[in-house]
């Protein structure tokens, strides 16, 4: 397995892995903020929203210039998957900006 191959395989799941971590982060911050009455709860949530989107945006821009058969096919699937992960991040975490956090 060459380095390019490995890169394509990792990229295939990288976007959604980042999305999962973002999900856990935001859900955790929401719960902690309510449990301990954080004063700047909303600001923290919005900051976390932006922080989460940064790696997703970065990943969705990476195009592997892969040579050869397995890597090139997977690289294209990876690009789709990572763009989907960015879209999923933007949409699923958007409520962090407005929805009632503790009721």
């Amino acid at each position: 397995m060459s380095a390019g191959d490995r890169r394509a395989l990792i990229l295939l799941i990288a976007g959604f892995t980042a999305w999962s971590f973002g999900f856990v982060l935001l859900y955790g911050l929401q719960a902690l903020g309510c449990a301990y009455d954080w004063p700047a709860h909303r600001a923290i949530l919005i900051a976390a929203y932006i922080v989460t989107l940064a790696p997703l945006a970065w990943l969705s821009l990476i195009k592997v210039r892969a040579e050869g058969e397995p890597a090139s096919v997977l690289a294209l699937s990876a690009l789709w998957a990572n763009r989907a992960a960015l879209a999923a991040g933007v949409l699923t975490f958007f409520p962090a900006t407005f929805a009632s956090a503790c009721i």
């Binding site: 407005f98 929805a99 009632s100 009721i103």
Partner: peptide, 15 residues
Amino acid sequence: LTGTALVLGEQLLPH
């Protein structure tokens, strides 16, 4: 659909 449902959901909450 999700947007509408979330706005509606906000209004139903016991504020």
